[in-house]
Simulated scan of single mutants.
Amino acid sequence: MTPSLKIDFVSDISCPWCVIGLKSLEQALERVAGDMTATLHFQPFELNPQMPLEGQEITEHITEKYGITPAQADANRENIRLRGESVGFTFSKADQRGGGRSRIYNTFDAHRLLHWAGLEGAEQQKALKEALFKAYFTEGQSPASHEVLARVAGEVGLDAAQAREVLASDDYADEVREREAFYQSQGIHSVPAVVINDRHLISGGQPAEVFEQALRQIAAAG
């Protein structure tokens, strides 16, 4: 009997290492596809839950939060850009014109929309998650904008009008907060965090080889 794995991918839309981790995990899942099946669920985590809707300039935010210099922040972003390139994802460089990629935004409404998408289906949720990563990190659009969120939902085949209704309401706010609180109570305070079968945790944007080895070991152990 082919082993089946449940994978919860805990992450934030504004987390670049989450993009890298997801791309690497997808590569690993392709490599093990003949030996096991897996269902992927995206769980919410906010890196900056107190961030106002208008956001904050990215270098200012990073230097304040992590106590590093602007030069170090730029070097970190370049490292992330290169890692993204290695897994087939394009991180645009932050511009100075106030574009989305030059700012960090509040992502709570994006997580509400992702929760709704998950109720529509796992594939729909995955498509929306990946499209939101691209909208923010590649195209520099704001994941706090209801207009952007609804449009992206429509582009991946979800009902854009229903997405707007969700965003205009408080729908799924309690559910998102409950899931966030649950994973924090499990000791997850940084992302990405990949939880397999509710028991095994893999932290960080690991290479595909690390994910593949872990998936095979867990599947073999039953």
Results as ranks from 00 to 15, higher is better:
Gly140Leu: 12
Ala173Phe: 00
Val152Pro: 00
Phe182Tyr: 14
Ala110Phe: 10
Thr107Asn: 11
Arg179His: 13
Ser203Asn: 04
Tyr105Met: 06
Gly187Met: 08
Gly84Asn: 06
Glu147Lys: 13
Glu130His: 10
Gly99Glu: 15
Ser142Met: 01
Leu119Pro: 01
His115Gln: 01
Ala193Met: 02
Asp174Cys: 04
Arg112Gln: 04
Leu167Lys: 07
Gln141Cys: 10
Asp170Val: 02
Phe108Ala: 03
Gln96Arg: 15
Val176Ser: 07
Ser102His: 04
Gly99Arg: 15
Glu178Val: 11
Leu128Lys: 10
Ala161Asp: 15
Asn106Leu: 12
Ala127Leu: 08
Asp171Phe: 01
Ala135Thr: 06
Lys126Leu: 14
Gly100Cys: 11
Tyr172Ile: 01
Ser169Arg: 06
Glu180Ile: 14
Gly154Ala: 09
Asn106Lys: 13
Tyr183Ala: 04
Gln124His: 11
Arg103Trp: 00
Glu165Thr: 12
Gln125Asn: 09
Thr138His: 10
Glu180Phe: 03
Ile188Cys: 05
Ala181Trp: 01
Ser169Val: 05
Val176Glu: 07
Leu158Phe: 02
Arg177Trp: 04
Ala122Cys: 04
Phe91Thr: 09
Leu158Pro: 05
His189Ser: 13
Ser142His: 01
Leu114Arg: 13
Val156Met: 05
Asp174Ala: 15
Gly100His: 09
Arg177Cys: 02
Val87Glu: 03
Thr138Lys: 03
Ala150Lys: 04
Phe182Trp: 15
Glu85Gln: 15
Arg112Met: 01
Ala135Pro: 11
Ala153Pro: 00
Asn197Lys: 10
Trp116Cys: 02
Glu147Ala: 15
His200Asn: 11
Glu130Val: 14
Arg179Trp: 01
Gln141Gly: 00
Tyr172Asn: 05
Asp171Gly: 03
Ala127Ser: 14
Trp116Phe: 08
Ala150Leu: 10
Ile196Asp: 11
Glu85Ile: 07
Val148Lys: 10
Glu178Phe: 04
Gly154Trp: 06
His189Tyr: 11
Pro192Thr: 07
Glu120Met: 08
Val195Ile: 12
Ser190Trp: 05
Phe89His: 02
Glu155Arg: 11
Glu165Lys: 13
Trp116His: 04
Glu130Leu: 15
Gln162His: 15
His189Met: 06
Ala150Arg: 02
Ser185Cys: 10
Arg103Met: 13
Ala94Glu: 15
